[in-house]
Protein backbone atom coordinates (compact mmCIF):
# COMPACT_ATOMS: atom_id res chain seq x y z
CA UNK A 1 0.00 0.00 0.00
CA UNK A 2 2.69 2.45 1.06
CA UNK A 3 4.86 1.51 -1.93
CA UNK A 4 2.03 1.93 -4.42
CA UNK A 5 1.14 5.25 -2.82
CA UNK A 6 4.70 6.49 -3.09
CA UNK A 7 4.87 5.43 -6.72
CA UNK A 8 1.69 7.41 -7.47
CA UNK A 9 3.14 10.43 -5.68
CA UNK A 10 6.34 10.18 -7.72
CA UNK A 11 4.36 9.96 -10.97
CA UNK A 12 2.18 12.93 -10.07
CA UNK A 13 5.21 14.94 -9.05
CA UNK A 14 6.99 14.26 -12.37
CA UNK A 15 3.99 15.59 -14.29
CA UNK A 16 3.65 18.60 -12.01
CA UNK A 17 7.36 19.39 -12.37
CA UNK A 18 7.01 19.74 -16.14
CA UNK A 19 4.09 22.19 -15.97
CA UNK A 20 6.10 25.48 -15.86
CA UNK A 21 7.58 24.55 -19.26
CA UNK A 22 4.25 23.51 -20.75
CA UNK A 23 1.61 25.95 -19.51
CA UNK A 24 1.10 29.70 -19.50
CA UNK A 25 1.68 31.83 -16.42
CA UNK A 26 -1.92 31.86 -15.30
CA UNK A 27 -2.21 28.08 -15.23
CA UNK A 28 1.15 27.74 -13.52
CA UNK A 29 0.10 30.13 -10.78
CA UNK A 30 -3.09 28.10 -10.44
CA UNK A 31 -1.01 24.95 -10.08
CA UNK A 32 1.19 26.73 -7.55
CA UNK A 33 -1.71 27.65 -5.27
CA UNK A 34 -3.03 24.14 -5.66
CA UNK A 35 0.33 22.69 -4.57
CA UNK A 36 0.48 25.06 -1.62
CA UNK A 37 -2.86 23.82 -0.35
CA UNK A 38 -1.84 20.21 -1.00
CA UNK A 39 1.12 20.76 1.30
CA UNK A 40 -0.94 22.57 3.94
CA UNK A 41 -3.95 20.26 3.94
CA UNK A 42 -1.96 17.03 3.80
CA UNK A 43 0.31 18.04 6.65
CA UNK A 44 -2.69 19.29 8.65
CA UNK A 45 -4.52 15.99 8.19
CA UNK A 46 -1.38 14.06 9.14
CA UNK A 47 -1.72 15.40 12.68
CA UNK A 48 -5.24 16.78 13.15
CA UNK A 49 -7.05 14.19 11.05
CA UNK A 50 -5.46 11.30 12.90
CA UNK A 51 -5.53 12.68 16.45
CA UNK A 52 -8.75 14.69 16.10
CA UNK A 53 -7.01 17.68 17.66
CA UNK A 54 -8.50 20.27 15.30
CA UNK A 55 -5.84 22.93 14.83
CA UNK A 56 -6.75 26.36 13.51
CA UNK A 57 -3.14 27.47 13.86
CA UNK A 58 -1.81 26.73 10.37
CA UNK A 59 -1.71 30.44 9.55
CA UNK A 60 0.66 31.04 12.48
CA UNK A 61 3.17 28.54 11.10
CA UNK A 62 2.69 29.76 7.55
CA UNK A 63 3.15 33.37 8.62
CA UNK A 64 6.24 32.61 10.68
CA UNK A 65 7.75 30.81 7.70
CA UNK A 66 6.95 33.80 5.51
CA UNK A 67 8.61 36.20 7.92
CA UNK A 68 11.69 33.98 8.28
CA UNK A 69 11.90 34.14 4.50
CA UNK A 70 11.48 37.92 4.48
CA UNK A 71 14.19 38.35 7.10
CA UNK A 72 16.74 36.01 5.56
CA UNK A 73 16.11 35.69 1.82
CA UNK A 74 18.56 38.45 0.89
CA UNK A 75 21.35 36.98 3.01
CA UNK A 76 21.02 33.19 2.98
CA UNK A 77 20.95 30.54 0.22
CA UNK A 78 17.43 29.56 -0.85
CA UNK A 79 17.37 26.03 0.62
CA UNK A 80 18.53 27.44 3.96
CA UNK A 81 15.70 29.98 3.87
CA UNK A 82 13.14 27.22 3.33
CA UNK A 83 14.69 24.96 5.97
CA UNK A 84 14.79 27.93 8.34
CA UNK A 85 11.08 28.57 7.83
CA UNK A 86 10.32 24.92 8.48
CA UNK A 87 12.51 24.75 11.58
CA UNK A 88 11.27 27.95 13.18
CA UNK A 89 7.65 26.94 12.59
CA UNK A 90 8.30 23.46 13.98
CA UNK A 91 10.11 24.81 17.01
CA UNK A 92 7.31 27.27 17.66
CA UNK A 93 4.69 24.51 17.29
CA UNK A 94 6.68 22.31 19.64
CA UNK A 95 6.76 24.99 22.33
CA UNK A 96 3.12 25.94 21.83
CA UNK A 97 2.23 22.24 21.81
CA UNK A 98 3.85 21.71 25.18
CA UNK A 99 1.61 24.44 26.57
CA UNK A 100 -1.70 23.64 24.88
CA UNK A 101 -1.75 19.99 23.83
CA UNK A 102 -3.16 18.85 27.16
CA UNK A 103 -6.45 20.48 26.14
CA UNK A 104 -8.73 18.72 23.70
CA UNK A 105 -11.73 19.57 21.56
CA UNK A 106 -12.98 23.14 21.51
CA UNK A 107 -10.29 24.36 23.88
CA UNK A 108 -7.55 23.22 21.56
CA UNK A 109 -9.22 24.66 18.47
CA UNK A 110 -9.87 28.00 20.15
CA UNK A 111 -6.37 28.10 21.59
CA UNK A 112 -4.70 27.42 18.25
CA UNK A 113 -6.83 30.17 16.73
CA UNK A 114 -5.79 32.46 19.58
CA UNK A 115 -2.19 31.41 19.07
CA UNK A 116 -2.18 32.45 15.42
CA UNK A 117 -3.87 35.77 16.17
CA UNK A 118 -1.46 36.39 19.05
CA UNK A 119 1.49 35.64 16.78
CA UNK A 120 0.13 38.00 14.15
CA UNK A 121 -0.32 40.84 16.61
CA UNK A 122 3.02 40.15 18.27
CA UNK A 123 4.84 40.27 14.92
CA UNK A 124 2.97 43.44 13.99
CA UNK A 125 3.95 45.01 17.29
CA UNK A 126 7.54 43.79 17.04
CA UNK A 127 7.96 45.07 13.48
CA UNK A 128 6.51 48.44 14.45
CA UNK A 129 8.80 48.73 17.47
CA UNK A 130 12.04 47.47 16.00
CA UNK A 131 11.80 47.76 12.23
CA UNK A 132 9.63 50.84 12.18
CA UNK A 133 7.35 49.48 9.46
CA UNK A 134 4.69 46.83 9.42
CA UNK A 135 5.16 45.44 5.94
CA UNK A 136 8.29 44.34 4.13
CA UNK A 137 9.20 44.56 0.48
CA UNK A 138 11.16 41.58 -0.79
CA UNK A 139 13.53 42.87 -3.42
CA UNK A 140 15.69 39.78 -3.77
CA UNK A 141 13.71 36.75 -4.86
CA UNK A 142 14.42 33.54 -6.74
CA UNK A 143 12.83 33.03 -10.15
CA UNK A 144 9.19 32.02 -10.26
CA UNK A 145 10.18 28.58 -11.62
CA UNK A 146 12.41 28.03 -8.61
CA UNK A 147 9.54 29.00 -6.31
CA UNK A 148 7.18 26.68 -8.15
CA UNK A 149 9.57 23.74 -7.95
CA UNK A 150 10.22 24.47 -4.29
CA UNK A 151 6.53 24.44 -3.42
CA UNK A 152 6.16 21.28 -5.49
CA UNK A 153 8.99 19.68 -3.51
CA UNK A 154 7.33 20.71 -0.24
CA UNK A 155 3.98 19.29 -1.37
CA UNK A 156 5.61 16.04 -2.49
CA UNK A 157 7.49 15.82 0.78
CA UNK A 158 4.26 16.41 2.72
CA UNK A 159 2.42 13.67 0.84
CA UNK A 160 5.42 11.32 1.00
CA UNK A 161 5.86 11.87 4.72
CA UNK A 162 2.13 11.40 5.25
CA UNK A 163 2.29 8.05 3.42
CA UNK A 164 5.28 6.93 5.46
CA UNK A 165 3.74 8.12 8.74
CA UNK A 166 0.55 6.18 8.05
CA UNK A 167 2.45 2.94 7.79
CA UNK A 168 4.62 3.63 10.82
CA UNK A 169 4.27 3.07 14.55
CA UNK A 170 4.27 6.84 14.94
CA UNK A 171 1.21 7.02 12.69
CA UNK A 172 -0.43 4.22 14.63
CA UNK A 173 0.20 6.11 17.85
CA UNK A 174 -1.45 9.22 16.36
CA UNK A 175 -4.50 7.16 15.36
CA UNK A 176 -4.62 5.63 18.84
CA UNK A 177 -4.56 9.10 20.39
CA UNK A 178 -7.47 10.09 18.16
CA UNK A 179 -9.44 6.98 19.07
CA UNK A 180 -8.92 7.06 22.86
CA UNK A 181 -5.95 8.95 24.17
CA UNK A 182 -5.92 7.53 27.69
CA UNK A 183 -6.32 3.99 26.45
CA UNK A 184 -3.43 4.47 24.05
CA UNK A 185 -1.31 5.74 26.89
CA UNK A 186 -2.07 2.74 29.10
CA UNK A 187 -0.95 0.55 26.18
CA UNK A 188 2.44 2.25 26.22
CA UNK A 189 2.15 5.25 23.88
CA UNK A 190 4.11 8.27 25.20
CA UNK A 191 1.16 10.47 24.23
CA UNK A 192 2.60 13.85 25.11
CA UNK A 193 5.79 13.29 23.14
CA UNK A 194 3.91 11.87 20.15
CA UNK A 195 1.45 14.78 20.09
CA UNK A 196 4.13 17.45 20.32
CA UNK A 197 6.23 15.72 17.64
CA UNK A 198 3.21 15.31 15.34
CA UNK A 199 2.14 18.92 15.80
CA UNK A 200 5.69 20.15 15.13
CA UNK A 201 6.13 17.91 12.09
CA UNK A 202 2.89 19.15 10.60
CA UNK A 203 3.88 22.76 11.32
CA UNK A 204 7.23 22.32 9.56
CA UNK A 205 5.47 21.90 6.22
CA UNK A 206 3.30 24.96 6.79
CA UNK A 207 6.41 26.94 7.72
CA UNK A 208 8.26 25.77 4.62
CA UNK A 209 5.26 26.61 2.44
CA UNK A 210 5.07 30.08 3.99
CA UNK A 211 8.78 30.66 3.41
CA UNK A 212 8.47 29.68 -0.24
CA UNK A 213 5.26 31.58 -0.94
CA UNK A 214 6.42 34.82 0.72
CA UNK A 215 8.76 35.68 -2.14
CA UNK A 216 5.93 35.28 -4.64
CA UNK A 217 4.10 38.22 -3.12
CA UNK A 218 7.10 40.61 -3.09
CA UNK A 219 5.34 42.63 -0.38
CA UNK A 220 4.24 40.97 2.84
CA UNK A 221 2.64 42.21 6.03
CA UNK A 222 1.26 40.32 9.04
CA UNK A 223 -2.35 40.77 7.95
CA UNK A 224 -1.63 38.94 4.70
CA UNK A 225 0.63 36.11 5.84
CA UNK A 226 -0.99 35.43 9.22
CA UNK A 227 -4.45 35.65 7.68
CA UNK A 228 -6.61 33.22 9.70
CA UNK A 229 -8.27 32.45 6.40
CA UNK A 230 -5.19 30.43 5.37
CA UNK A 231 -5.68 28.20 8.41
CA UNK A 232 -9.42 27.96 7.90
CA UNK A 233 -9.14 27.12 4.23
CA UNK A 234 -6.60 24.43 5.09
CA UNK A 235 -9.00 22.85 7.58
CA UNK A 236 -11.81 23.21 5.07
CA UNK A 237 -9.88 21.45 2.31
CA UNK A 238 -8.80 18.63 4.60
CA UNK A 239 -12.30 18.17 6.00
CA UNK A 240 -14.08 18.39 2.69
CA UNK A 241 -11.55 16.00 1.21
CA UNK A 242 -11.67 13.62 4.15
CA UNK A 243 -9.48 14.13 7.22
CA UNK A 244 -8.42 10.50 7.34
CA UNK A 245 -7.67 10.00 3.69
CA UNK A 246 -4.69 10.92 1.54
CA UNK A 247 -6.30 11.32 -1.86
CA UNK A 248 -9.29 13.27 -0.52
CA UNK A 249 -7.34 16.39 0.50
CA UNK A 250 -5.37 16.21 -2.80
CA UNK A 251 -8.56 16.29 -4.79
CA UNK A 252 -10.13 18.94 -2.56
CA UNK A 253 -7.04 21.14 -2.89
CA UNK A 254 -7.38 20.94 -6.67
CA UNK A 255 -11.09 21.80 -6.60
CA UNK A 256 -10.60 24.69 -4.19
CA UNK A 257 -7.72 26.28 -6.03
CA UNK A 258 -9.75 26.12 -9.23
CA UNK A 259 -12.71 27.68 -7.44
CA UNK A 260 -10.46 30.27 -5.86
CA UNK A 261 -8.74 31.32 -9.06
CA UNK A 262 -11.86 31.55 -11.16
CA UNK A 263 -14.28 32.94 -8.62
CA UNK A 264 -12.16 34.96 -6.25
CA UNK A 265 -11.13 37.67 -8.67
CA UNK A 266 -14.52 38.23 -10.27
CA UNK A 267 -16.84 37.41 -7.39
CA UNK A 268 -14.83 37.48 -4.17
CA UNK A 269 -17.85 37.55 -1.89
CA UNK A 270 -19.67 34.82 -3.74
CA UNK A 271 -16.54 32.71 -3.49
CA UNK A 272 -16.38 33.06 0.29
CA UNK A 273 -20.10 32.43 0.65
CA UNK A 274 -19.67 29.26 -1.39
CA UNK A 275 -16.76 28.24 0.85
CA UNK A 276 -18.84 28.77 3.97
CA UNK A 277 -21.75 26.77 2.62
CA UNK A 278 -19.40 23.99 1.50
CA UNK A 279 -17.83 23.83 4.93
CA UNK A 280 -21.22 23.56 6.64
CA UNK A 281 -22.47 20.97 4.16
CA UNK A 282 -19.28 18.94 4.48
CA UNK A 283 -19.42 18.94 8.28
CA UNK A 284 -23.12 18.06 8.33
CA UNK A 285 -23.37 15.55 5.53
CA UNK A 286 -19.89 14.27 4.74
CA UNK A 287 -18.16 13.52 8.04
CA UNK A 288 -15.64 11.35 6.16
CA UNK A 289 -15.25 13.99 3.46
CA UNK A 290 -15.29 13.39 -0.28
CA UNK A 291 -13.12 10.35 0.36
CA UNK A 292 -16.05 8.93 2.34
CA UNK A 293 -18.07 8.88 -0.85
CA UNK A 294 -15.85 6.47 -2.75
CA UNK A 295 -14.86 4.56 0.37
CA UNK A 296 -18.49 3.76 1.18
CA UNK A 297 -19.10 2.85 -2.41
CA UNK A 298 -16.05 0.59 -2.49
CA UNK A 299 -17.22 -1.08 0.70
CA UNK A 300 -20.73 -1.50 -0.72
CA UNK A 301 -19.42 -2.98 -3.95
CA UNK A 302 -16.99 -5.41 -2.44
CA UNK A 303 -19.49 -8.08 -1.25
CA UNK A 304 -21.26 -7.96 -4.63
CA UNK A 305 -18.00 -8.55 -6.44
CA UNK A 306 -17.16 -11.44 -4.14
CA UNK A 307 -20.41 -13.15 -4.97
Amino acid sequence: MARRGLAAVAGGAAVAAALPWLLDDFLVSLALSCLMYVALATSWAMFSGATRYVSLGTSAFFGLGAYVSAWTVAAAPWPVVIAGGALIAAAFAGLAGLAILHLRGTYFAVLTFGMSELTRHAVTYGEKQYAGTVGRVLTVAPSSRTVYLTVLAIAVAAVGVAVVVRGSRFGLALIGIGADEQRAQTLGVPTRRVKVAGFALSAAFAGAAGAAMAVRWTYIDPTAVFNPFIGLQTVLIAIVGGPLSLTGPLLAALVFSLLAEFLRLQFPYAYLIALGILLIVAVLYLPQGLAGLWQTRARAERPTAAR
Binding site: R52, V54, G105, Y269, G276, V283
Partner: peptide, 24 residues
Amino acid sequence: EAFEARSLLVGFGLMFVVQNVALL
Protein backbone atom coordinates in the same frame (compact mmCIF):
# COMPACT_ATOMS: atom_id res chain seq x y z
CA GLU B 1 -16.16 16.37 22.08
CA ALA B 2 -16.79 15.62 18.41
CA PHE B 3 -19.96 17.73 18.48
CA GLU B 4 -18.07 20.70 19.89
CA ALA B 5 -15.35 20.47 17.26
CA ARG B 6 -17.84 20.14 14.42
CA SER B 7 -20.18 22.87 15.60
CA LEU B 8 -17.15 25.13 15.81
CA LEU B 9 -16.45 24.45 12.12
CA VAL B 10 -20.09 25.06 11.24
CA GLY B 11 -19.76 28.37 13.09
CA PHE B 12 -16.83 29.31 10.88
CA GLY B 13 -18.89 28.39 7.83
CA LEU B 14 -21.71 30.64 9.03
CA MET B 15 -19.20 33.41 9.63
CA PHE B 16 -18.07 33.28 6.00
CA VAL B 17 -21.62 33.20 4.70
CA VAL B 18 -23.13 35.99 6.80
CA GLN B 19 -20.15 38.33 6.55
CA ASN B 20 -19.88 38.00 2.79
CA VAL B 21 -23.59 38.30 2.19
CA ALA B 22 -23.36 41.59 4.07
CA LEU B 23 -20.40 42.64 1.94
CA LEU B 24 -22.35 41.72 -1.18
